[in-house]
Amino acid sequence: MSLPITLTVNGVPQRIVLDDPRVTLLDLLRERLDLTGTKKGCDRGQCGACTILVDGRRVNSCLALAISHDGAEITTIEGLARDGELHPVQAAFIAHDAFQCGFCTPGQIMSAVGLIAEGQAGTDPERVREGMSGNLCRCAAYRGITEAVIEAQETMGQAGRQEAA
């Protein structure tokens, strides 16, 4: 079976011929496109390690069939840093030691970028914690994660204001 679809992955449009309709976005990225930054922790939508942005929204890529996402725009952890410069969320994760083993980190960061784009949490720590609760961290770096998300949001807000000015 060959099933052609078009995806824009980290800004680059790609024509992909799927060999199997069962392939999830997660397994497409990891096993076929060599984008292994996105992690598989549970494969059942219960841990958030596979979080990516689809058309700008954070979703669990393990519960998304690739074939059903024909035409979608995908952003993964590999597509976040621009010209070698870390995204503010990435930088804040390092500064606040918002990870230990690092395995959930790509999902945490993509989730944080999605959360900031949603604009619902603001810098209210309780809303950030709730909004980040779909990303399990067994090392339990939650305090750093919350601090990093808030700081990145503040940084991005300042940058946005400067750009506007």
């Binding site: 984008l35 292994t36 930054g37 996105t38 993964t76 952890i77 590999e78 976040l80 840093a81 870390l86 990435q90 930088a91 994760f93 390092i94 990870f99 690092g102 980190t105 790509p106 960061i109």
Partner: peptide, 8 residues
């Protein structure tokens, strides 16, 4: 840190 936050 950089390796871990960039997925590398």
């Amino acid at each position: 840190g950089v390796l871990k936050v960039t997925g590398q």
